[in-house]
Every structure is written in C-alpha cells, then in structure tokens.
C-alpha cells in the first residue's frame, strides 16, 4: 500500500514555529476559513464545493425500493463517501483508510443521525415501497479540512435535490417524469454543518480552523463540532490526540456556532441564486403541483 509522503522535518518545524508566533502560511487568521465556493450542476442535487484547493463533488439521487423490514414506515437514506486515488496516492479503491472511515462516520452522525432529512416523508406505501435517497460524496482533491467541506457539500446537495413527484390512485403508484410534473424537494428539517478545529502545541493550546493538508499533517489533535444555526449540537468528535483544556473546547464550540451561522446564510443565498437562475420567466410556480402549507 503506498503511503502519503510526510512533510519534511524542516517543513513541520516551520509550520509549527509560524503558528507559535501567531502566523499561518497563507496569511489567514486562526479562525478564518479559506474562501468557500459552491457551484450547482445542471441536474438537481449535483454540487461542487471548493475550499481552497480541496474539491468535493456530491450528488444526490433517489430510487424506489422496498423499505427495511424493521422500519416499514421509513424511507432509506445513505451517504456513500469515496476517497479515490485521484485525490491522493494513499487512497485505494475498495480499501477504506482510517480517514475515510472517520469521514463517513462523521457525515453519518452529523446528517443522518441528527435527523436532518425527514425519512418518514420518503415512505410511499407502508412496508412495500419507499424512496431510497443516496448521496455520493467524491473527494476530487485533498488539501485539508475534508470533513467540513464534505459535510457542506452533502447538505447542499440534499437541499438542492428534487425527487420525482408521485401519486397513488387505487393502490397504483405513479412516478412522474420531470416533464409531467415538476420534481419536489425533500422533507428537510435542519441543516447541520461541521466545523473542525486542529490543535497545536504541547498542551494543544493553539487552535486553528480549516487546516490545510500540511497543517493537518503536523497537528497534535483535532475536534469536529457539528451544529445547526439554531444552536443545537448534532455531534462532537474529539477522537483522542493530545488532551486539550475543557474550557478552550467550550470556547471552540461558541466560535463554531458563529461559523455555522455564516455557512447557513451562505448556503441559503447560493440556493436562492440557483433557484432564480432556473426559474426563467416565472414558470415554476405554475408547474408545481405542491400546495403551500
């Protein structure tokens, strides 16, 4: 198995000494993100997120399947992550590295377990038919902070996604093509975002947001906090590493909440822009078969 080349001792020392004198290599502040770019594809549910040189593509899709036997009233929702050799030679297909396992667990906990998607609304016929919503997250380029970018891409693609409209008459399920009826958005409850802190120093006293690949290689620990803009924690994961003062973790959480509100506003803005772009001539309102609640 090829291993990723580690940064040299000189590089490591340079990064750490810079951090100790309150500097980052790219001139950002410690709690500043690289510019986050979001672009939506022509299809619904295709999102590309760029965070500096990190690039992530997420695609949501839906198909009709049979629900799980123990959950007849729920639809199925899965998130599949793929770290391809394209991003780094250390990633191999069909052989999940620790990074990939932790990434997919974090997305799972943040988006799925926190109940962001209303899976009950995916049920079509109880115990027989339901939607299976699937998000495929592809890492195209890895320059650090995969978790935050991947989580943003997942949430963006699910909120952008439209599933085909359906109706049931006399027990016959009809799935309409986009030409017949305008596809409908998913039942979405809240938008969680991940914020990852990286810690440096002997006691983890230096905390940095959005670490690049080089910064990630020299960190002594990290903590991923998932929140939504209502101030609810969806998940916290500080999985080992150098111990950090409990008080500074609390501080990290409150800064994370500010960042999450910014993410949330950014995504809302981008989605509104995209909706405007698609809605040429204001025909969408006419085509929709949905009622205002």
């Amino acid at each position: 198995m090829p291993r990723e080349a580690e940064p040299s001792l000189n590089e490591k020392q340079f990064v750490i000494q810079a951090l100790q004198s309150n500097l980052r290599l790219d001139g950002r502040k410690f709690d500043q993100y690289r510019p986050l770019e979001v672009s939506f594809g022509e299809q619904y549910g295709v999102v590309e997120v760029k965070l500096g040189k990190t690039r992530i593509l997420a695609k949501a899709s839906a198909e009709v399947t049979v629900p799980y036997v123990d959950r007849p009233l729920d639809g199925i929702f899965t998130i599949a992550t793929e770290l391809s050799p394209m991003a780094s030679p250390a990633f191999e297909v069909n052989r999940p590295t620790e990074t990939e396992v932790l990434l997919s667990r974090l997305l799972e906990k943040t988006v799925r377990r926190s109940g962001a998607l209303d899976t009950e609304s995916l049920c079509l016929v109880a115990g027989q038919k339901c939607w299976h919503v699937r998000v495929d997250v592809h890492i195209l380029s890895h320059d650090g902070d995969l978790i935050d970018a991947a989580c943003f891409a997942t949430v963006a693609s699910l909120r952008h996604f439209r599933k085909p409209d359906t109706s049931i008459e006399n027990g016959v399920l009809t799935v309409y093509t986009p030409a017949e009826r305008e596809p409908v958005p998913l039942g979405w409850l809240h938008s969680p975002f991940c914020v990852t802190w990286s810690f440096y120093g002997d006691e983890g006293e230096i905390a940095v947001l959005d670490a690049t690949w080089l910064e990630e290689a020299v960190r002594v620990g990290s903590c991923t906090i998932s929140l939504n803009r209502h101030g609810e924690i969806c998940q916290i994961a500080k999985l080992g590493g150098t111990p950090v003062e409990a008080l500074s973790l609390l501080q990290c959480t409150s800064i994370a909440l500010v960042r999450v509100k910014e993410f949330s506003a950014l995504l809302d803005k981008k989605l509104a822009e995209d909706a405007k772009r698609r809605d040429r001539g204001g025909l969408l309102a006419e085509l929709s078969a949905e009622n205002d609640r």
């Binding site: 906990k109 377990r113 926190s114 109940g115 006691e203 983890g204 903590c223 929140l227 101030g231 609810e232 924690i233 969806c234 998940q235 916290i236 994961a237 500080k238 999985l239 080992g240 590493g241 150098t242 111990p243 950090v244 003062e245 409990a246 008080l247 973790l249 609390l250 959480t253 409150s254 909440l257």
Partner: peptide
C-alpha cells in the same frame, strides 16, 4: 487535570447544555 483527551457526543443537544454536561 481538566484536559480532555476524548470528547464524543452523538446526540442532538442545545449548545447551552454542553457546559454543564462537560
């Protein structure tokens, strides 16, 4: 010490509860 090596939270909870729980 008060230094936290592992902190894992897997459920949804208000941010204001964190301090007390921690």
């Amino acid at each position: 010490s008060d230094r936290v090596a592992v902190l894992v939270c897997e459920s949804r909870v208000q941010v204001s509860r964190l301090e007390g729980m921690l």
